[in-house]
Design a protein around this nucleic acid. Structure first.
Ligand SMILES: NC(=O)c1ccc[n+]([C@@H]2O[C@H](COP(=O)([O-])OP(=O)(O)OC[C@H]3O[C@@H](n4cnc5c(N)ncnc54)[C@H](O)[C@@H]3O)[C@@H](O)[C@H]2O)c1
Ligand SMILES: NC(=O)c1ccc[n+]([C@@H]2O[C@H](COP(=O)([O-])OP(=O)(O)OC[C@H]3O[C@@H](n4cnc5c(N)ncnc54)[C@H](O)[C@@H]3O)[C@@H](O)[C@H]2O)c1
Lengths: 214, 214
DNA sequence: ATCTTATTGTTAATAAAATAACAATGTTTT
DNA sequence: AAAACATTGTTATTTTATTAACAATAAGAT
């Protein structure tokens, strides 16, 4: 098994989702799970689950289902970085605070270590559990705290410049929530998400369903 | 051209993204755009853009690029519902408020007409521009205001029950931001999004890139 | 201990999505 | 007004993702 081969993005997404659900199940004291159960929880097929687990080389021993604890651990070995990676939120407004409060204490291998803003009201305060730094100190702070991932939640008109800055300061991955489409060098991984797209997609299928089903 | 054929979900997503970007460009007084320009803004290929537009039967006249205003209008005719659809946010916490403030005044065919919560502090107040109703009045309010789409942002432990309720009250599409995986009847369209998955995906590729590039 | 059964792991087949190839078309240049 | 050109619209091809099929395996039943 080529352990050093990059997994397809889709598989990585599902592995993250498997783990999220498995952790919930562990909390409910469930210890084993069948592929078809996990599939049903994610609205996918059991084959897909088994295929994904095959890709990461995980094998269950069979017939009793997967050992949830073990599987969570295996997924971690594949998708987490051993030493952990440090994350910052850039732009501590409505969305930034929501993300911070959600993120807090969730993932042991991804540490939310800082946020940045240009609002004097926010600078040097702890907001939603994370210290807010002056955006002017970003270069220094990113280096000092060894931050490699940024969650971008500044206003649209600040997005482009801010993105160029953080890339210059050594950020290697960006989750962009602004409505602005960014350009980054090929060695920086960029993921973009816009809620409006999700809502419009829902609306489209609702509309189509209403057309055919009344 | 089969106008009544459902488009692939991926195409619907891209159409929404095209429109978002085109509206930004219009605001900057740009009137025409080539397929390759639009593609670059979305990090996809020009062929994909042209293919999507072919699917919705849009034709440019050629060589001067697409008329942005016209294209925005055409996309609207395809993905929007003519009469508009009404949307509610269920759970007006950190994320609910962030979504509300983002949504406000954005889409003319999707109207954010209500939010629901069980916190007496919030009930009957206008929060982030939208009135917050008592969750107990949800059945009535959903019917009165003809709400067909819900954005679910309640705490995880309330998610399942709340989802069952809104489905019973006639909701036809749900955008689920809770970490709980929901089950809905086949005539209800469900879209789920978890930020942690996005961040873990970024982290995975950052890790892999660091391995190969130092 | 053997048989039955349920579930896995994996290869093969199918389906969906993306890309390439290129003729058609309208624009600009000469 | 013809030639050169850039860009589109569309079909064909390739690639990627999903699903189906099924032999292998281990748990439980007899
Ligand atoms: N709210 C949402 O649900 C949502 C959803 C999708 C996308 N977005 C986008 O995310 C971004 C943030 O949305 P929001 O609702 O949190 O907005 P917001 O105005 O509440 O927050 C923006 C924050 O960025 C800070 N800021 C402004 N300029 C800055 C700069 N140059 N450097 C650093 N910080 C700066 C502001 O002080 C503020 O704290 C926007 O681009 C918005 O379009 C929001
Ligand atoms: N904050 C984020 O960025 C983020 C991201 C992804 C997912 N989520 C998920 O979204 C949900 C909301 O997150 P949040 O940070 O806004 O939490 P929050 O606690 O700030 O907000 C939850 C809101 O729901 C209300 N509520 C509680 N029980 C309710 C009930 N039974 N009926 C109606 N309303 C009820 C609360 O009064 C509160 O206003 C959670 O499930 C969280 O896991 C949050």
């Amino acid at each position: 098994m080529m352990q050093n081969m990059k997994l397809p993005g889709k598989t990585v997404e599902r592995l993250s989702e498997y783990r999220r659900i498995l952790l919930n199940l562990l909390a409910e004291k469930k210890n084993y799970i069948y592929s078809y159960e996990l599939a049903a929880l994610l609205h996918i097929t059991a084959v897909q689950v088994r295929r994904d687990l095959m890709l990461i080389g995980y094998s269950s021993g069979a017939r009793k289902g997967y050992d949830i604890r073990e599987l969570v651990e295996t997924i971690g070995r594949i998708i987490d970085s051993e030493e952990g990676l440090n994350v910052a939120i850039v732009g501590m407004g409505n969305l930034g605070r929501a993300v911070a409060s959600y993120f807090r204490g969730k993932r042991s291998k991804l540490n939310l270590v800082a946020s940045f803003d240009n609002d004097p009201q926010k600078i040097n305060k702890v907001i939603s559990g994370v210290k807010c730094f002056d955006i002017k100190t970003m270069e220094q702070t990113i280096r000092d705290l060894n931050i490699s991932i940024a969650i971008l939640t500044v206003p649209p008109d600040a997005a482009k410049n801010t993105c160029d800055e953080i890339v210059r300061y050594g950020i290697r991955g960006i989750l962009n929530f602004t409505t602005v489409s960014l350009k980054v060098p090929p060695d920086v991984y960029l993921e973009e998400y816009d809620m409006i797209t999700s809502i419009e997609k829902v609306a489209y299928f609702v509309k189509e369903n209403l057309k055919t089903q009344g």
